[in-house]
Nucleic acid binder design. Sequence first.
DNA 1: GTCTATACGCTGATAGAC
DNA 2: GTCTATCAGCGTATAGAC
Lengths: 181, 181
Amino acid sequence: MKDTRNEIVSIADELIRTKGYNAFSYSDISTRLNIKNASIHYHFPTKSDLGVEVIKETIEQFKIVTDSWRKLTLDKQFKKFVTMHDKSNKKHWLCLMGALSSSTDTLSPEMLKELKKMGTVILDYLTELLREGKEQKVFSYTSDPKTKAYLVQSSLLASLLLDNVLGGDTYKIIQNGVLEI
Amino acid sequence: MKDTRNEIVSIADELIRTKGYNAFSYSDISTRLNIKNASIHYHFPTKSDLGVEVIKETIEQFKIVTDSWRKLTLDKQFKKFVTMHDKSNKKHWLCLMGALSSSTDTLSPEMLKELKKMGTVILDYLTELLREGKEQKVFSYTSDPKTKAYLVQSSLLASLLLDNVLGGDTYKIIQNGVLEI
DNA sequence: GTCTATACGCTGATAGAC
DNA sequence: GTCTATCAGCGTATAGAC
């Protein structure tokens, strides 16, 4: 069933972003779906294949979402971007980049390649948004757009990580700091 | 031997910061030291005990290092802090917080507690440094010191993560952005 | 597409000799 | 302190029936 395949990817995404890539197993998924491990291997022969698919779908989703923002003003687009992971944070999920970038040593070349692509797609979008915003004097940051994009992206990524350790208002504190632009 | 114990902790630290906590095993350590797994269990009965010790020693080391900066000017202390992980980055190692915060779901309560302590120690130091620096007009950032400390810490933590994915000048770009203060 | 059955290495951990 | 021996459980993965 096409549905099973989708559910496998969806659960894998959740498990990566909660337990981490190396801590989740095919059994975690098969138990939840009431199927057997072998069925997952039919859809995704190796764990790496599954990991690659999770990243690919995340990239697609990012493109769809940011495309849907195209008609908004630049500052509204920026706010959308910064608050993108509010729901994830409430569930104590990480973003996929934050979850996977801590174990690059253990990822397959295929996963690493796709992960790099994801990072590029995100940073390219953000850089362009910040460049236009500076040009149109919507934003007043001082550094160059690329540097600012890297700063914003790294702060947001780590806000989810640190929030899981420190709790409290960690996520909101960092988010509000990033919004001062 | 006291030496063996120290070497176990040192190698565990490296493995956590390269492979991740859930991806390294007692065998990884015993092989390197030419000892047997059981010997490690003598020093650290459980993997969690070993993990806790790695965090504790990192906290101690942080206190010793930052104490040794006390006589420096505030802007020099800040530069020391920001460049603290330059050597780690060259070896593609993460900082301990970056490595562990992505798998909080799988850590023991003891490790989580110690990790939280580490985060607090680092952020308290940084907040105070930034507060004094603003007071003395050495730094000219606009947000409040605590928010700025969280922003700096999150950017630096993620700079090591993103660098392992994107490569290039990622680490330096973020570092230079953080230094604009 | 999903199942049963199976392989086999590795995992963290323990008991007891030296 | 370090060793040998051993454990049960889980990991990813495959072969072949239905």
